[in-house]
Design a protein around this nucleic acid. Structure first.
Lengths: 216, 216
DNA sequence: TGTACATCAGTGAACGCGCGTTCACTGATGTAC
DNA sequence: TGTACATCAGTGAACGCGCGTTCACTGATGTAC
């Protein structure tokens, strides 16, 4: 990976940590993955990062501040994953959207700690504008994808893009949090979450195409 | 509501509480609604129920045990709501399923405390069989509804009932937890969650009907 | 109907512990000259 | 290149507090006779 300073070596850290903020985030993710987003303390995170209990105060106001930062980073990572999966709509919008769905599930499954900080830590969005915006940006990918797909549909049956994007998000999030979580709260089904989501998106898109011009 | 003994009166409770288990549940629901499922202590719940910190130990092993009981009761309440909404498929299965969806959203919106105990408290299902079963029973309603709807479809295009039920659950849960929560983590949209879900279910059902007999 | 007794569901005092937070401090790093 | 100094990011001791949990106890209730 390559740290910036090689004065930082395990076991011989020295007085200054050098990258405590990042180390706290990583340590906290481990704690969340291990015991859930609720069951650890600020002091525990400091200890896990190998630092005194007072040190985190140089970087975060309190525990909630740390959690919000983790959720923020999580949304940015998710956004990057979704952008990559969307790949500007290649090879074709329908396939690219399927890839986006798969990427969403993969993120939820492989980063349960980020995921639960993002969606289950009950961080009030009306007091964390940066966090809400990061969430909106990730959602934006679904919106762009929906718009592209809608543009390829006959004029008469085009649904509102925002609605379609919301539907896809709800479906992906629902599948991920009920059946695709990476922890012991996961529910079992006779099919893979990826298959389940893929089938749903297929049916949904067929339903859109079948939509009556005058219907509703 | 009518308590069993009228010796129990506010302010003159006496030595025995009479219904501490229920009182703890209710007090805890208030605490969850107020500050989220994570941010209260066992002692706090006891205090809110007007009882010493040692008293809850007569009824619950620890805080997790209390939370699991709340989630369990929540699933039972949800199941009852869904049964009522389904109403044995009247007036017709499609309308009844819409009613089920609305009931699901209503539950999530009006009982955010139950809802977050059920879905966001990260209770390990593999160690709480009763809880998992209660969840399965609630899900069972969606299954029954799906079966009924499928039975009315042409033989050639019938999807697996379990898949359809999972799709509906994922969609409902996704809409509820992203857009329909009753707290400050709710996301805003230019449409009501009920409309959003209803539109999605409509599109989904049309997609099912449009399904090609041979189309995988 | 009355009495004795077992059981149940609370109390409240006690304990050790770790958390959150502050504070004066100190070692390391960066920069001006 | 060297020195002085400001700034930064840690330490560790200290504190009060409330939590979780146990315990002997006690008041209320139910029941046998």
């Amino acid at each position: 990976m390559g740290w910036s300073k090689d004065t930082k070596r395990d076991g011989g850290r020295g007085y200054h940590h050098g990258n405590l903020r990042e180390a706290l985030v990583r340590a906290t993710l481990d704690l969340i993955a291990e015991k859930g987003p609720a069951s650890f303390t600020f002091a525990e995170a400091a200890r896990a990062a190998g630092v005194s209990a007072a040190a985190p105060y140089r970087h975060y106001r309190d525990r909630d501040d740390l959690m919000a930062d983790i959720a923020f980073r999580g949304f940015n990572l998710l956004e990057a994953d979704l952008v990559r999966a969307w790949n500007e709509g290649s090879p074709d919008p329908a396939t690219a959207l399927e890839n986006v769905g798969r990427a969403y599930l993969k993120f939820a499954g492989s980063e349960p700690a980020y995921y639960s900080a993002m969606f289950e830590a009950a961080i009030p969005l009306d007091r964390n504008l940066a966090l809400r915006d990061a969430g909106e940006r990730a959602f934006g990918i679904l919106r762009v994808a929906s718009e592209k797909i809608i543009a390829g549909m006959p004029q008469s049956s085009r649904p509102p893009a925002l609605m379609m994007a919301s539907h896809i998000w709800a479906l992906s999030h629902g599948v991920a949090s009920l059946f695709g979580r990476g922890d012991s709260a996961r529910r079992l089904l006779p099919m893979q979450p990826e298959e389940l989501l893929e089938a749903a998106m297929l049916i949904y898109r067929e339903g859109l195409q079948a939509q009556n011009p005058e219907g509703k």
